[in-house]
Simulated scan of single mutants.
Amino acid sequence: MRLYLYDHCPFCIRAEMVAHYKRVPVEQVYLLNDDEASCLAMIGAKQVPILQFDDGSAMGESLDIARHLDEIGDVLRPIRPHGDTEAIRAQLDRARLAIWCLLFPRDIALDLPEFATASARDYFQAKKEQLIQRSFAQALAETAEHKAAVEAMLAGLPALPLPSEHGGTLGWDDVLLYPGLRNLSMVRDLAFPPAVRAYVEEVARLTATTTYFDRAR
Protein backbone atom coordinates (compact mmCIF):
# COMPACT_ATOMS: atom_id res chain seq x y z
CA MET A 1 0.00 0.00 0.00
CA ARG A 2 0.99 3.59 -0.56
CA LEU A 3 0.06 6.59 1.58
CA TYR A 4 0.13 9.84 -0.39
CA LEU A 5 0.53 12.88 1.79
CA TYR A 6 2.11 16.27 2.55
CA ASP A 7 4.52 16.67 5.46
CA HIS A 8 2.81 19.82 6.80
CA CYS A 9 -0.78 18.60 6.43
CA PRO A 10 -2.47 17.89 9.80
CA PHE A 11 -4.99 15.58 8.12
CA CYS A 12 -2.13 13.56 6.65
CA ILE A 13 -0.48 13.28 10.04
CA ARG A 14 -3.62 11.56 11.34
CA ALA A 15 -3.13 8.73 8.88
CA GLU A 16 0.65 8.63 9.38
CA MET A 17 0.23 8.41 13.17
CA VAL A 18 -2.05 5.39 12.96
CA ALA A 19 0.03 3.65 10.27
CA HIS A 20 3.15 3.89 12.42
CA TYR A 21 1.50 3.13 15.75
CA LYS A 22 -0.37 0.11 14.37
CA ARG A 23 2.73 -1.07 12.48
CA VAL A 24 1.04 -1.16 9.09
CA PRO A 25 3.62 -1.34 6.28
CA VAL A 26 2.86 1.54 3.92
CA GLU A 27 5.08 3.36 1.47
CA GLN A 28 4.84 7.09 2.18
CA VAL A 29 4.81 9.20 -0.99
CA TYR A 30 4.96 12.98 -0.80
CA LEU A 31 3.10 14.72 -3.62
CA LEU A 32 3.94 18.21 -4.81
CA ASN A 33 1.38 20.67 -3.51
CA ASP A 34 0.31 21.71 -7.00
CA ASP A 35 -0.03 18.13 -8.29
CA GLU A 36 -3.78 18.09 -8.82
CA ALA A 37 -3.70 15.40 -11.49
CA SER A 38 -2.47 12.57 -9.24
CA CYS A 39 -5.16 13.21 -6.64
CA LEU A 40 -7.92 13.51 -9.22
CA ALA A 41 -6.85 10.28 -10.90
CA MET A 42 -6.99 8.34 -7.64
CA ILE A 43 -10.02 9.74 -5.77
CA GLY A 44 -11.54 12.42 -8.01
CA ALA A 45 -10.66 15.29 -5.68
CA LYS A 46 -7.61 17.40 -4.93
CA GLN A 47 -7.02 16.32 -1.36
CA VAL A 48 -4.66 14.25 0.75
CA PRO A 49 -4.07 11.89 2.44
CA ILE A 50 -4.84 9.12 -0.03
CA LEU A 51 -4.36 5.44 0.73
CA GLN A 52 -3.78 3.41 -2.43
CA PHE A 53 -4.15 -0.35 -2.27
CA ASP A 54 -2.07 -2.91 -4.13
CA ASP A 55 -4.84 -3.39 -6.71
CA GLY A 56 -4.70 0.31 -7.64
CA SER A 57 -7.92 1.32 -5.88
CA ALA A 58 -7.69 4.17 -3.40
CA MET A 59 -9.52 5.88 -0.57
CA GLY A 60 -9.49 9.42 0.80
CA GLU A 61 -10.68 11.17 3.98
CA SER A 62 -8.15 11.11 6.79
CA LEU A 63 -10.30 9.56 9.51
CA ASP A 64 -11.63 6.86 7.17
CA ILE A 65 -8.04 5.99 6.31
CA ALA A 66 -7.02 6.04 9.97
CA ARG A 67 -9.89 3.72 10.92
CA HIS A 68 -8.97 1.30 8.12
CA LEU A 69 -5.33 1.26 9.20
CA ASP A 70 -6.47 0.61 12.77
CA GLU A 71 -8.59 -2.34 11.61
CA ILE A 72 -5.76 -4.02 9.69
CA GLY A 73 -2.95 -3.12 12.07
CA ASP A 74 -1.40 -4.76 15.12
CA VAL A 75 -4.21 -5.94 17.41
CA LEU A 76 -1.84 -5.71 20.38
CA ARG A 77 -1.59 -1.93 19.94
CA PRO A 78 -5.13 -0.69 20.64
CA ILE A 79 -6.27 2.89 20.17
CA ARG A 80 -8.17 4.30 23.13
CA PRO A 81 -11.74 5.48 22.46
CA HIS A 82 -12.71 9.14 22.23
CA GLY A 83 -13.11 11.18 25.39
CA ASP A 84 -14.47 14.67 25.89
CA THR A 85 -12.16 17.08 24.06
CA GLU A 86 -14.76 19.67 23.12
CA ALA A 87 -13.22 22.36 25.34
CA ILE A 88 -9.74 21.75 23.91
CA ARG A 89 -10.96 21.84 20.31
CA ALA A 90 -13.02 24.98 20.96
CA GLN A 91 -9.95 26.74 22.36
CA LEU A 92 -7.90 25.78 19.31
CA ASP A 93 -10.66 26.95 16.98
CA ARG A 94 -10.79 30.38 18.60
CA ALA A 95 -7.14 30.93 17.66
CA ARG A 96 -7.51 29.52 14.14
CA LEU A 97 -6.72 32.69 12.18
CA ALA A 98 -3.65 33.47 14.30
CA ILE A 99 -2.47 29.87 13.85
CA TRP A 100 -2.91 30.05 10.09
CA CYS A 101 -1.06 33.39 9.89
CA LEU A 102 1.86 31.87 11.76
CA LEU A 103 1.98 28.55 9.94
CA PHE A 104 1.16 29.17 6.29
CA PRO A 105 4.19 31.38 5.49
CA ARG A 106 6.45 29.01 7.41
CA ASP A 107 5.13 25.92 5.63
CA ILE A 108 6.87 26.97 2.42
CA ALA A 109 10.09 28.02 4.19
CA LEU A 110 11.00 24.65 5.73
CA ASP A 111 12.21 22.72 2.67
CA LEU A 112 9.34 20.26 2.88
CA PRO A 113 9.00 17.77 0.01
CA GLU A 114 5.60 19.04 -1.13
CA PHE A 115 7.14 22.47 -1.74
CA ALA A 116 10.23 21.33 -3.66
CA THR A 117 9.36 23.46 -6.70
CA ALA A 118 8.59 27.15 -7.11
CA SER A 119 5.27 26.32 -8.76
CA ALA A 120 4.20 24.22 -5.74
CA ARG A 121 5.09 27.06 -3.37
CA ASP A 122 3.31 29.64 -5.52
CA TYR A 123 0.20 27.45 -5.77
CA PHE A 124 0.02 27.09 -1.99
CA GLN A 125 0.73 30.75 -1.30
CA ALA A 126 -1.96 32.00 -3.67
CA LYS A 127 -4.62 29.80 -2.06
CA LYS A 128 -3.65 30.48 1.53
CA GLU A 129 -3.31 34.24 1.10
CA GLN A 130 -6.93 34.24 -0.04
CA LEU A 131 -7.89 32.26 3.06
CA ILE A 132 -6.17 34.58 5.56
CA GLN A 133 -6.98 37.74 3.59
CA ARG A 134 -3.42 39.08 3.74
CA SER A 135 -0.09 38.46 2.05
CA PHE A 136 2.42 36.10 3.58
CA ALA A 137 4.72 39.11 4.02
CA GLN A 138 2.06 40.87 6.09
CA ALA A 139 1.35 37.74 8.12
CA LEU A 140 5.05 37.41 8.94
CA ALA A 141 5.26 41.09 9.87
CA GLU A 142 2.43 40.45 12.32
CA THR A 143 4.21 37.49 13.95
CA ALA A 144 4.40 39.04 17.42
CA GLU A 145 0.66 39.70 17.46
CA HIS A 146 -0.23 36.21 16.28
CA LYS A 147 2.25 34.55 18.63
CA ALA A 148 0.71 36.37 21.59
CA ALA A 149 -2.76 35.12 20.63
CA VAL A 150 -1.57 31.53 20.19
CA GLU A 151 0.50 31.53 23.37
CA ALA A 152 -2.52 32.75 25.34
CA MET A 153 -4.57 29.93 23.81
CA LEU A 154 -1.93 27.32 24.67
CA ALA A 155 -1.62 28.60 28.23
CA GLY A 156 -5.35 28.17 28.71
CA LEU A 157 -5.69 24.67 27.29
CA PRO A 158 -7.30 22.06 29.53
CA ALA A 159 -5.12 19.11 30.46
CA LEU A 160 -4.09 16.96 27.51
CA PRO A 161 -4.21 13.14 27.72
CA LEU A 162 -0.58 12.03 28.01
CA PRO A 163 -0.02 8.55 26.54
CA SER A 164 2.22 7.72 29.52
CA GLU A 165 -0.80 8.15 31.78
CA HIS A 166 -2.71 5.58 29.72
CA GLY A 167 -0.32 2.67 29.50
CA GLY A 168 1.68 4.14 26.62
CA THR A 169 -1.26 3.84 24.24
CA LEU A 170 -2.51 6.18 21.54
CA GLY A 171 -6.03 7.59 21.74
CA TRP A 172 -8.40 8.74 19.03
CA ASP A 173 -8.33 12.10 20.77
CA ASP A 174 -4.58 12.23 20.06
CA VAL A 175 -5.28 11.59 16.38
CA LEU A 176 -7.41 14.73 16.37
CA LEU A 177 -5.40 16.99 18.70
CA TYR A 178 -1.74 16.21 18.10
CA PRO A 179 -1.40 17.20 14.41
CA GLY A 180 -2.35 20.84 14.94
CA LEU A 181 -0.21 21.21 18.05
CA ARG A 182 2.69 19.48 16.33
CA ASN A 183 2.58 22.00 13.48
CA LEU A 184 2.97 24.89 15.93
CA SER A 185 6.47 23.57 16.60
CA MET A 186 7.55 25.26 13.37
CA VAL A 187 7.21 28.72 14.99
CA ARG A 188 10.51 29.77 16.51
CA ASP A 189 10.41 30.75 20.18
CA LEU A 190 6.69 30.07 20.51
CA ALA A 191 6.16 29.56 24.25
CA PHE A 192 4.78 26.06 24.75
CA PRO A 193 3.59 25.39 28.30
CA PRO A 194 5.67 22.47 29.64
CA ALA A 195 2.65 20.15 29.76
CA VAL A 196 1.74 20.90 26.12
CA ARG A 197 5.34 20.41 24.98
CA ALA A 198 5.48 17.11 26.89
CA TYR A 199 2.27 15.97 25.20
CA VAL A 200 3.57 16.80 21.71
CA GLU A 201 6.88 15.06 22.33
CA GLU A 202 5.27 11.95 23.86
CA VAL A 203 2.85 11.49 20.99
CA ALA A 204 5.61 12.15 18.45
CA ARG A 205 7.73 9.37 19.96
CA LEU A 206 4.82 6.97 20.23
CA THR A 207 3.79 7.47 16.60
CA ALA A 208 7.28 7.92 15.08
CA THR A 209 6.27 11.26 13.60
CA THR A 210 8.52 14.29 13.37
CA THR A 211 8.14 17.73 14.91
CA TYR A 212 9.69 20.98 13.71
CA PHE A 213 11.29 22.23 16.94
CA ASP A 214 14.80 21.78 15.56
CA ARG A 215 14.14 23.83 12.40
CA ALA A 216 11.55 26.36 13.50
CA ARG A 217 11.38 29.68 11.67
Rank of each mutant, 00 (worst) to 15 (best):
L97V: 08
V200G: 01
A120E: 07
Q138T: 15
F115K: 05
L92E: 12
I88H: 12
A155N: 10
S164L: 12
L97W: 02
A116D: 14
G171M: 05
S185W: 08
A149G: 01
A159R: 15
R106K: 08
S164H: 09
L181Q: 07
P179H: 11
A87I: 13
F192K: 02
E86L: 15
T169K: 08
G180K: 14
D174M: 05
A198Y: 00
T143I: 04
P81F: 11
L181H: 06
A144G: 14
I99N: 05
A152W: 03
D189N: 13
T117G: 00
S185Q: 12
L162V: 14
Q133V: 07
A126Y: 11
A95C: 09
R182D: 07
W172E: 08
Q130N: 08
A109L: 11
L110F: 11
E142I: 02
H82W: 14
V196L: 00
S164C: 10
L103Y: 04
I132T: 09
L131M: 13
L190G: 00
K147L: 06
P163L: 07
D173H: 13
T143E: 15
R89E: 14
S164M: 13
G171P: 05
R197S: 00
S185P: 05
C101W: 02
A198T: 06
L102I: 08
P105I: 01
R121N: 07
C101D: 05
A109V: 05
P194A: 05
E145P: 00
D122T: 06
I132G: 02
L184I: 12
A159N: 13
L110W: 10
V200R: 00
